[in-house]
Amino acid sequence: MHVHLLQHAPHQGPARLADWLTSMGHSHTVFHLDAGELPPKPGDGDALVLLDGPEGPLDETRQPWLRRERKLVERALDGHRPLLGIGYGARLIATALGAVVARGTFAETGWHPVTLAAESGLDLPERFEAFMWHREVFALPDNALPLGGSEASPLQGFSWDDGRVLGLLCHLEATAESVGALLANEPLPEGSEASPHAQDTAAMLGDPRRFDRLAPLLDRLLSQWLRQAAA
């Protein structure tokens, strides 16, 4: 299977997601939309991943790739290929499905527990810890199932069309290297300084085992998601 990944910021890339695809025998191409690369054609590839990107509104004047990407997302939603959005990408999918996207009450950064929704239908533990980096949140789209939530963000993701489409606010793909690059090169989400749900750098990077524990969660989620390609 060949997977297309759309990147929206130089330091918010695939991280462990690319390694997982390779280890499972899948090929992939990363399209650097932030660097001016055009997105793939709607019919290309077997699955599509929309990576994280800029915080704030989805704004075509500041994000020149957005108009083309929105058309690609609409075609993907109408088709039968798996579609996954993380952070910015999840907001883009939620918007295309008619859900409200807005600034949350608090910025949420670092490590926070997520409680799985009873109706999620996803193969994940009832409670797990995930990495967060956001202020923007979204409402549950019509006909979607909730992933579950954290204390600051009651909706940490959703599945749609029997799990073929996933939107994740949290980051299961994060590695120590990807978070280090994020901290060194990207501004903190707005309001992080005053948020009770924002961690400092030492807390984010202090325990490497946290990143190791994300790996089996990502494996479980992606394995379930890509099974839709063979359905």
Rank of each mutant, 00 (worst) to 15 (best):
R164A: 11
E151T: 14
R127I: 00
L116S: 11
W160Q: 01
A76W: 13
R135P: 03
R81C: 06
R81N: 12
P154Q: 09
V137A: 07
L147Q: 05
T95V: 09
R91M: 14
Q63K: 05
T105G: 02
A99E: 06
E126Q: 14
R164S: 08
P113C: 07
T61F: 10
T61Q: 15
D162N: 15
G98L: 05
R68G: 04
L122H: 00
A139T: 12
Q156G: 03
I93D: 10
D161Q: 15
E108F: 08
E74R: 15
A144S: 12
S150H: 04
P146N: 06
W160I: 08
P82H: 05
A107K: 03
F138Q: 09
E129R: 12
L84W: 06
G79E: 01
P125N: 01
G87A: 12
A96H: 09
P141M: 01
G89D: 06
A90P: 13
V100A: 13
G149W: 03
G163N: 06
F158T: 02
S159F: 11
R62H: 13
P141T: 01
L124M: 05
M132P: 00
T109R: 09
E74H: 15
P146K: 07
S120W: 00
G110K: 05
R164P: 12
L66Q: 03
P125I: 00
R75F: 08
H80L: 11
R103T: 05
A144G: 11
P154A: 12
E151M: 04
S153A: 15
Y88G: 10
G98W: 03
G157Y: 03
E126S: 14
R70C: 11
E151V: 11
E60A: 15
P113W: 11
D162S: 13
L72S: 01
G85V: 10
H112P: 06
M132N: 13
G87I: 10
E69W: 02
H80W: 11
L72Q: 05
R67S: 15
F106D: 14
P64D: 02
R103G: 06
L84A: 05
D162H: 14
G148I: 04
T105Q: 14
R103I: 00
L122T: 01
L147N: 04
P113N: 09
F138T: 08
A130C: 11
S153R: 04
L145W: 13
L122S: 00
E136Q: 14
G79N: 12
G163F: 10
Q156R: 09
